[in-house]
Amino acid sequence: MCLGIPGQIIEISDAENLCGIVNVAGVKREINLHCVVDAEHPVATCLGVWVLIHVGFAMSRIDEAEAVRTLQLLTELGEMQQEFEAMQRSEK
Protein backbone atom coordinates (compact mmCIF):
# COMPACT_ATOMS: atom_id res chain seq x y z
CA MET A 1 0.00 0.00 0.00
CA CYS A 2 1.07 3.50 -0.60
CA LEU A 3 4.30 3.59 -2.52
CA GLY A 4 6.30 6.53 -1.24
CA ILE A 5 9.80 7.54 -2.19
CA PRO A 6 12.26 10.21 -1.09
CA GLY A 7 13.12 13.06 -3.41
CA GLN A 8 14.75 16.46 -3.09
CA ILE A 9 12.96 19.69 -3.97
CA ILE A 10 15.20 21.46 -6.47
CA GLU A 11 12.93 24.24 -7.67
CA ILE A 12 9.78 26.05 -6.61
CA SER A 13 7.92 26.08 -9.92
CA ASP A 14 4.72 27.82 -8.79
CA ALA A 15 4.87 29.45 -5.36
CA GLU A 16 1.25 30.59 -5.50
CA ASN A 17 -0.14 27.09 -6.10
CA LEU A 18 2.55 25.44 -3.95
CA CYS A 19 4.17 23.42 -6.72
CA GLY A 20 7.80 22.39 -6.92
CA ILE A 21 10.12 20.17 -8.92
CA VAL A 22 11.60 17.16 -7.15
CA ASN A 23 14.61 15.14 -8.16
CA VAL A 24 14.57 11.38 -7.56
CA ALA A 25 17.88 9.86 -8.65
CA GLY A 26 18.00 12.12 -11.71
CA VAL A 27 14.31 11.81 -12.60
CA LYS A 28 12.38 15.05 -12.20
CA ARG A 29 8.70 15.76 -11.77
CA GLU A 30 6.48 18.59 -10.64
CA ILE A 31 4.70 17.80 -7.38
CA ASN A 32 2.31 19.52 -4.99
CA LEU A 33 3.90 20.88 -1.79
CA HIS A 34 0.75 21.70 0.15
CA CYS A 35 1.32 19.06 2.86
CA VAL A 36 4.85 20.24 3.69
CA VAL A 37 4.08 23.95 3.87
CA ASP A 38 2.62 25.64 6.94
CA ALA A 39 3.03 28.86 8.91
CA GLU A 40 6.33 27.68 10.34
CA HIS A 41 7.61 26.33 7.04
CA PRO A 42 6.73 28.77 4.22
CA VAL A 43 7.14 27.59 0.65
CA ALA A 44 10.41 29.48 0.24
CA THR A 45 12.03 27.18 2.83
CA CYS A 46 11.27 24.10 0.75
CA LEU A 47 14.18 24.44 -1.62
CA GLY A 48 16.73 21.68 -1.07
CA VAL A 49 14.45 19.90 1.37
CA TRP A 50 14.03 16.10 1.11
CA VAL A 51 10.42 14.94 1.08
CA LEU A 52 8.50 11.70 0.87
CA ILE A 53 6.52 11.64 -2.37
CA HIS A 54 3.25 9.82 -2.95
CA VAL A 55 1.08 10.14 -6.10
CA GLY A 56 2.50 13.53 -7.02
CA PHE A 57 2.32 15.07 -3.53
CA ALA A 58 5.07 15.75 -1.02
CA MET A 59 3.56 14.10 2.03
CA SER A 60 6.24 14.62 4.66
CA ARG A 61 9.55 16.40 5.19
CA ILE A 62 12.22 13.79 5.80
CA ASP A 63 13.98 14.44 9.09
CA GLU A 64 17.69 14.08 8.41
CA ALA A 65 18.57 13.96 12.11
CA GLU A 66 16.13 11.11 12.70
CA ALA A 67 17.48 9.16 9.73
CA VAL A 68 21.03 9.58 11.05
CA ARG A 69 19.88 8.53 14.53
CA THR A 70 18.26 5.35 13.18
CA LEU A 71 21.39 4.39 11.26
CA GLN A 72 23.63 5.29 14.18
CA LEU A 73 21.61 3.02 16.42
CA LEU A 74 21.99 0.18 13.94
CA THR A 75 25.74 0.76 13.74
CA GLU A 76 25.99 0.67 17.52
CA LEU A 77 23.93 -2.50 17.61
CA GLY A 78 26.41 -4.03 15.18
CA GLU A 79 29.34 -3.03 17.39
CA MET A 80 27.60 -4.40 20.45
CA GLN A 81 26.98 -7.68 18.68
CA GLN A 82 30.64 -7.87 17.73
CA GLU A 83 31.78 -7.22 21.29
CA PHE A 84 29.30 -9.77 22.55
CA GLU A 85 30.62 -12.36 20.12
CA ALA A 86 34.21 -11.55 21.04
CA MET A 87 33.29 -12.00 24.69
CA GLN A 88 31.66 -15.33 23.98
CA ARG A 89 34.70 -16.47 22.04
CA SER A 90 37.08 -15.54 24.84
CA GLU A 91 34.91 -17.38 27.37
CA LYS A 92 35.12 -20.58 25.41
Binding site: L3, V24, A25, V27
Partner: peptide
Protein backbone atom coordinates in the same frame (compact mmCIF):
# COMPACT_ATOMS: atom_id res chain seq x y z
CA UNK B 1 21.55 3.18 -14.12
CA UNK B 2 20.62 5.34 -11.11
CA UNK B 3 17.97 7.21 -13.13
CA UNK B 4 16.36 3.95 -14.21
CA UNK B 5 16.29 2.82 -10.60
CA UNK B 6 14.73 6.16 -9.64
CA UNK B 7 12.06 5.88 -12.30
CA UNK B 8 11.28 2.35 -11.19
CA UNK B 9 11.02 3.40 -7.54
CA UNK B 10 8.62 6.22 -8.47
CA UNK B 11 6.37 4.06 -10.61
CA UNK B 12 6.69 0.82 -8.68
Amino acid sequence: REEVKGLCEILG
